[in-house]
């Protein structure tokens, strides 16, 4: 038997391939940051003719950017709350009970994230039309909550599956009633899964654009603001500043979620 940290060292070919992959994924992001500082306001010429921090000032002075940022934060926060409640309840039900059609219901819960966003968006739009719901802040939140529920659900059910069912019995055996067991054993065990799921849901909602396009009406979230701004001929770098904002705001929660679930090997996020 060998203590299995000793995997074979990767050959140079594999190392090079890995680095190529990393660069391929991340170099475009570096360009976004670079062009925040360019002095060229119409096109993205390389190398930038000069560097300036002017665009941060311009961007921060734009009321429509602040409005878009505010809307995105509010939508993300409320979608996250809805997802936390519904996702946890769904996970608890799926974990606890066996019933006819359970596999189907599981699939239906996961569907919003498995389907292309455009399908989710179209169907939501059609549903709002049928229900005579005018587009508003709340249609946007509902749209986002559909796929946010999935990440919370995934995190919570993974944690439940990994927790020994004997934990609850052990707590009862040691004298704790149902309420005490929930407070001292179940909730603390779920806490990091809830936080991680919530953070991911927040990040997912914050930069979402496809479903948003179908459910927002004429409201501008930050991603929509960026998309519209791109088509304007000047002040191009302002969009880069906005993009960097999206990056910073989503990166924090994702990193946090990663660290929270790293030790427990949960499935923190899943595709999308």
């Amino acid at each position: 038997m060998r203590s299995d940290t000793g995997r074979a060292k990767a050959g140079w070919g594999l190392t090079a391939a890995a680095w190529f992959g990393v660069l391929f994924l991340n170099v475009p992001i570096l360009f976004i940051i670079l062009y925040c500082f360019t002095t060229d306001d119409r096109s993205y010429s390389f190398p930038p003719p000069g560097l300036t921090t002017r665009w941060f000032g311009v961007a921060l002075a734009r009321d429509d950017l602040w409005a878009a940022l505010g809307l995105s934060l509010r939508v993300a926060f409320i979608s996250m709350l809805i997802a936390l409640v519904l996702g946890t309840l769904a996970a608890a039900a799926m974990f606890r009970f066996r019933f006819f059609g359970k596999e189907t219901v599981t699939l239906l819960i996961l569907l919003p994230i498995a389907l292309p966003g455009i399908v989710t968006g179209m169907s939501l739009r059609a549903a709002f039309d049928l229900a005579n719901l005018p587009f508003s802040f709340w249609t946007l939140v509902l749209g986002h909550a559909t796929f946010c529920i999935v990440v919370v659900y995934n995190n919570v059910i993974a944690r439940l599956r990994r927790s020994s069912p004997a934990l609850v019995e052990a707590s009862m055996d040691l004298g704790a009633n149902s309420f005490q067991t929930f407070r001292h054993v179940i909730l603390p065990n779920l806490a990091t899964a809830l936080l991680a799921g919530g953070m991911l849901a927040f990040a997912l909602s914050f930069d979402e654009i496809i479903v948003t396009t179908f459910t927002a009406g004429n409201q501008n979230t930050l991603p929509i603001f960026i998309l519209k701004e791109l088509s304007r001929p000047h002040n191009r770098p302002v969009t880069n500043v906005a993009a960097v904002m999206v990056m910073v705001i989503t990166f924090g929660p994702i990193l946090l979620a990663y660290y929270l679930t790293r030790d427990t090997q949960d499935t923190a996020g899943s595709g999308k």
Binding site: S163, A170, S171, A176
Partner: peptide, 27 residues
């Protein structure tokens, strides 16, 4: 179970993973 004067050592131990050893014993 919580009103019975018996305690159990479980097959898979069922220690509370979020508590320290001392907190487990003192639960």
């Amino acid at each position: 179970p919580y009103d019975r004067d018996v305690n159990t050592v479980f097959q898979d131990y069922a220690l509370f993973p979020h508590m320290t050893v001392l907190e487990n014993v003192g639960y």
